[in-house]
């Protein structure tokens, strides 16, 4: 099998997909999926709570299984693939990164809001010290101008990031905006450039292609779209599309399709599709992980989840502010009750 890779894909279903299953992954699920992905020759597999190491919380959802057990299980199953973790400073800490590295993790992706790269300096440097490949992950990239994004990307590069990702956490970017951002980074950085999409506006694949055209060499995929909101760039689709374009991912198309159909589809509570809720995420530019939390709050307070998400967009909340969902929902419901009286 041709394992030469023109583009390097990181599979995020066992991290970003954690949101879609409300952080209820079991060791057996992680084992079988990691084994299947490894066998299909996926180069990197990210495993963590959806909000990264230490994300298990009442704020984001408690993990059914300790993520360190899941990481250990994935490491044990893979032969060629490298296991990666996500770390958001402020949520996860360096001791947790050390523990993960001790379990055999090979890559650390350190994430901050697009304007706050400087909180990642110590974590990126520490990951390097632990001998890990490092990625700087600039979330909610649609909220900053390309110029600001470049400034922050340069900071991450200066801390030692081997790769800097433009992360469209809200699935709000349009292809021309992706192109503009990636091209600017490509021009000014020596680090690899990556792109992480969400499919809320049905643009994940198109945006991924736009990013590649502009110079991105790292992309993220989630198998069967198992990611927050409407999911990410569907891995098996990306493998097929890129294969038709004669771009080698090194991933076996039939095998990856089988993993999606036979192993991942059965664990989804509902098929990943673009519902009105996830569409609103992309439309209003709201963090994709808010999706299920907003549905829950809407039910509890008897209001439309769209009105919660739109209000959150207006208030410019950032990733991780899940507590604002309940706060805003309670406020909207109170306002509604007052109007009714």
């Amino acid at each position: 099998m041709n394992s030469k890779r023109d583009i390097v894909l990181t599979e995020v279903a066992l991290r970003d997909g954690s949101h879609a299953v409300r952080h209820q992954f079991t060791v057996d699920q992680v084992k079988s999926i990691a084994k299947g992905l490894d066998d299909a020759n996926v180069p990197y597999i990210e495993v963590s709570h959806g909000d990264g190491l230490g994300g298990s919380s009442m704020q984001y959802g408690l993990s059914l299984t300790n993520e360190m057990e899941l990481i250990e299980a994935a490491v044990a199953e893979v032969k060629q693939a490298k296991i990666a973790v996500l770390l958001i400073p402020g949520i996860g800490t360096m001791p947790q990164l050390k523990e993960a590295a001790g379990l055999g993790v090979k890559m650390a992706r350190v994430a901050t809001h697009v304007t706050e790269a400087d909180v990642s300096a110590q974590h990126i440097a520490y990951a390097k010290e632990l001998g890990l490949e490092t990625v700087g992950f600039l979330m909610m990239s649609h909220m900053a101008s390309p110029k600001k994004l470049l400034e922050q990307a340069k900071l991450m590069e200066s801390y030692g990031a081997d790769t800097v990702y433009v992360v469209d956490s809200a699935g709000a970017l349009l292809p021309h905006q992706v192109k503009e951002r990636i091209a600017l980074l490509k021009e000014h950085l020596t680090a690899n450039i990556g792109f992480h999409a969400h499919n809320n506006l049905s643009l994940a694949m198109a945006n991924t292609l736009a990013a590649m055209e502009a110079g991105a060499t790292r992309i993220d995929g989630s198998i069967r779209c198992l990611g927050a909101g409407a999911g990410n760039t569907q891995t098996e689709v990306a493998v097929a599309v890129l294969d038709k374009m004669n771009i080698h991912t090194g991933i076996d198309l039939y095998k990856i399709m089988d993993v999606a159909e036979d192993l991942v589809a059965p664990i989804l509570e509902t098929p990943q599709e673009i519902t009105r809720g996830s569409l609103v995420l992309g439309y209003a530019g709201v963090y994709s992980s808010f999706y299920l939390h907003a549905q829950k709050a809407a039910e509890r307070f008897g209001i439309d989840s769209r009105s919660i998400l739109i209000e959150l967009g207006k208030r410019e909340v950032v990733g991780g502010q899940e507590d604002m969902i309940m706060d805003v929902a309670a406020e909207l419901s109170k306002r509604k009750a007052e109007v009714a009286v």
């Binding site: 230490g54 402020g90 949520i91 360096m94 809001h113 909180v119 410019e316 909340v317």
Partner: peptide
């Protein structure tokens, strides 16, 4: 930022009285 989460967690337990604690800090540029 790590010290923030670690020291606050310690305070939640030692001073607040909780059996277990956790602290998260977020920065918002709005």
């Amino acid at each position: 930022i790590d010290e923030f989460t670690q020291t606050t967690t310690r305070g939640i337990v030692e001073v607040g009285g909780a059996k277990r604690g956790k602290a998260i800090i977020l920065l918002n540029p709005a």
